[in-house]
Design a binder for these strands. Structure first.
Lengths: 190, 190, 190, 190
DNA sequence: AATGAATGAGTATTCATTCAT
DNA sequence: TATGAATGAATACTCATTCAT
């Protein structure tokens, strides 16, 4: 009694031909990582999030590690792209400073999911060399973007300060206000 | 075939009386977290690290979460204590600045295990409210220590900068040198 | 010492494709419940009884409770079916009385396993609401079957009497003989 | 941090000398059995219910089975005593009939805990010979009490009917009313 | 006499991955 | 190409019982 499919409650899914599914799976993986952490990210959970049969996961990816690597690469790329765009749009040093402030206040602190994903990536990278490649490429790219407007030493320091401001605000019960962030950045660059 | 060798098959661990075991388990937990991450921290792994039978874990702790909470509390306490000590030893602002530099270069970046533990704690806290209590108490304590020598705004910014410098160096293939760290901190406080 | 004997160490069970396994598991569960009681009914025990790997249990059933519910439902259905059949075959009141006597003497008391299963179900239902549904549907069905031939009050009393006769005989060292059962039932309906 | 006693939350218990503890433990066991079933009855649970240290259980009883046996014996004795008393107080057959009705309506159906305990005992006895002794002594005693007023055959039938009425009412969503019980019993004895 | 600590076997359940269709 | 079924290792946790104090 009661059909033989044990877990998935009801939804018939007649989606045999589905190009772009691999892509959707990577996005689903990011959602799951953000919601439940890398530790809670399983084939099953991702498949459920993407509304796709379990077998499809191992059909499209050789292993869960492969999924994680692709997901984190996508995340880093998307954050880095915003970084690039903000800074390459700035015409002078002052505009660059404003860009950095916006970046921290709006882009980084504004997107809860991205924030969580970044910290998850840091920790995962600590033990997974494949992910270390991702974080390093990302850091290099951020610093490069900053170096369009600041000398190498300043760029590096600024990058660290940004990291600290974001992380602190993320963990704090009373995150810094945009004015406080502006103050911190301007003081360092003064 | 070949008798069952009935007595003392593995002659290890005749440790029925072992006061302080709970304590050792917490330390073992910290070692395991540092080595394999929170995700890889299991009852078994901790028991193995402490050379203690598995059942002992659940005798001493109601759940794995309790173990994590106690372990991270101990970690945060020990890091905060160093912070406190360095800063309360400083007689004036200049000495305080030197203290901060030493803190970052030596204490924080010097102890690989502590560094990893801190990042693990950040991520774990993102999903575990009990741990959030730990991080917040810790942050409050650091800031308080800094406020012995700096105004509240500066203390907060400095705390964030320290965080960023440590994290960046931790993740980077080429961590910042003590001189670079001194430069960053002095520039902000200049 | 002595090579690892790499191939087919225990040449059992090459049953990758096995339709109807879920079904067999439910039957195995009933066997185990009858033999060792609900308390002794574990995933492992059922898997062993069905000669199936442990993992298969949790693939087919979301929880042990689900297994129990399905197993008891099957049991109740099968007992109720016999009840139905006997009584719907009876053409008049006298035939119905004979049917009830046969039911108690042969069907209920005759099948040791069914008897034990019923008592197990009673107790389990006392603490598991899902099972209470099963017992109640079953009771309703029995009473309905009796009401084909007897008025509602009589049906209810008869149902209770049957229960008592069966339970008493089941627990007793000297169970009632068919004649004694006939006497009890006839006296009540006289 | 936090003392070495892991489970029991706070309550200091300086009760080194405590005669009658064994007795209280048996009562606690009955409470636990009624609340969580034999399957959920553990040393720990009983110790907690009696507010006694775990070690005390195995100090007073050689095994859990011993606890169960003593607890069920006490339960059966107390139910049988009521049975005895009601029936020995009856001066004639009519009074005996009234006694039986009161017994079922008030004593048996009125005490939820006793009812549950009885069914638990039945099932436990099915697999534990030591308990079978208890149930059989109990049944013999009930029947003997009935035989003060009824012939052997009637006593036996009545005993079964009582059992059925109680069990049915216990399991049913709409238990029989005292009038319905009176009707059933009187009809059988008419 | 009494008890906290200790332990190993057992429990349900999860899951990455393999396989047959 | 795609997937439901299958599996074995692992996980957190429970517990009767033993033991040292």
């Amino acid at each position: 009694m009661s059909g033989p499919t044990p877990r998935s409650p009801v939804p018939r899914r007649p989606r045999r031909h589905d190009p772009g599914r691999r892509d959707r799976l990577i996005d689903a993986a990011l959602t799951v990582i953000a919601e439940r952490g890398v530790a809670g990210t399983t084939h099953r959970e991702i498949a459920r999030a993407a509304d796709v049969p379990l077998g499809s996961m191992t059909y499209h990816f050789a292993s869960l590690d492969e999924v994680l690597a692709e997901a984190f690469t996508r995340h880093a790329d998307s954050v880095a792209r915003v970084f690039d765009e903000r800074l390459s749009a700035a015409r002078d040093r002052d505009a660059a400073i404003e860009a950095v402030i916006t970046l921290v206040s709006d882009d980084l602190l504004g997107a809860r999911q991205d924030l969580v994903l970044s910290v998850e990536l840091y920790v995962a990278a600590a033990r997974n060399p494949a992910l270390r490649t991702v974080t390093q490429a990302w850091m290099a790219r951020s610093r490069q973007a900053l170096e369009r407007h600041f000398d190498a030493t300043t760029a590096r320091e600024l990058d660290a300060l940004i990291e600290g401001l974001v992380l602190h605000s993320a963990l704090s019960t009373d995150p810094m206000t945009p004015e406080q962030i502006r103050h911190a950045i301007c003081r360092h660059l003064r």
